[in-house]
Amino acid sequence: MDTLARLSGLIPRLEAAAPRGSWLPGAHLVALTAEVPPYCSKLEPMVALVVAGEKRTMLPGREFTCGPGDYLIYSVELTVTARITRADPFLAVGVRLRPELIAELLLETPEIAARDEPYVGLGVAAADEELLEAVLRLLRLVERPRDFAVLAPGVEREIHWRLLTGPQGDLVRQVGRADDRFTVVRRATRYIEDRFDQAIRVDDLARHVRVSVPTLNRRFREVTTMSPLQYQKQVRLQQARIRITAAPGDIAGVGHSVGYESSSQFSREYRRLFGVTPSQDAPGAQPRETVTPSRDAPGAQPRETVTPSQGAPT
């Protein structure tokens, strides 16, 4: 039995017994048997390994597809749109990337240097056997608590090392380095998320993160493929979707609460991102035919599909 098959047998059992990563801070397991339409998710720096099924993560103009044996690196805190496109079943494991551990590994291996060039804060690659085996050993320890306490830190360190020296090593290194570009973007996204329902002036945001407006726009787009205001719009719509669950009969009120003055604009942009209108997405609504999120979402560029890297970091 190969490593992916072993992981496929282990994840559903562990997900049922220890959901939401109670066994390792910041980690989580996913086991689904049905496809999931587009949704927004707030992510911190982490690696997400797909064991079975398929997941697509979208940024304006780019789409990252992960199938069995692929992993997606998130190097910056970011709200993204994703969908589960194949769930027969869909199985995945996510592990938070620890900046202090990555920084420690970099200090021990000074010959590993990050390339000084712009790239988006997400990347996808195919996992090699060494990485898959390390993830499998970590999950097996979950069922042996006494061993886990002693051995898990070493396996977690190995996983970070495999990622650091793998095809997406540049992205992983950024998590452990005080990189000015990523620091600016992290501070900017937090500022936006704290004020998502308010009118934000770009020059105020630039002043907050202590860079010029052109520098802010350039660095933000390099990492997220969005402008700051496009990112704010995505956060607003994510919050709206959460609030619709609590107030399904007050669609206009929800739109207003997240910063929209126009109900028609709110409905139009909601459908553009999630494929359904707010009223169609509300609990208890009659099932409706959904549409693929538009390529013409605010700020979108011609779509580029990103497949797992087989060579050097890109």
Rank of each mutant, 00 (worst) to 15 (best):
E77Q: 15
K55G: 00
P99D: 00
P45W: 01
E133F: 04
F64I: 08
L97C: 00
R98I: 01
L97I: 02
G21N: 09
D88I: 15
E104G: 07
L24S: 14
T57N: 04
V80M: 01
C66V: 12
L78A: 07
D88H: 10
A48Y: 13
A87K: 05
G53S: 03
R13N: 12
L101G: 11
R13E: 08
Y119H: 12
A27M: 10
Y119K: 07
V76H: 09
P37F: 07
T57S: 12
T85L: 05
L122P: 01
V30A: 14
S75Y: 05
K42H: 15
V76A: 08
G53M: 05
E54T: 15
E54M: 12
R83H: 10
R98V: 13
L43R: 12
A125Y: 00
E117Q: 10
K42N: 12
T79I: 11
A114N: 04
P45V: 00
L14Y: 00
S75I: 06
M46W: 00
Y74R: 15
E63V: 04
G61K: 03
D70T: 08
A114G: 08
G53A: 08
Y39L: 11
L59S: 07
A48V: 08
L49F: 00
E108K: 07
Y71K: 03
L43Y: 08
L43N: 08
G26I: 06
G123F: 01
T79M: 06
A113P: 09
A87R: 02
E108A: 09
R56C: 13
E44S: 10
V30G: 11
M46G: 02
P68H: 01
E129S: 10
H28S: 14
R20N: 13
A103E: 07
S41T: 13
L49P: 05
G53C: 08
V93S: 01
R56N: 12
A87F: 01
L29C: 01
V50H: 03
C66R: 15
A48D: 05
L14G: 04
C40L: 12
S22A: 14
V76N: 09
Y119T: 14
R20T: 14
P60V: 01
E129H: 04
L91M: 03
L43C: 04
E108V: 11
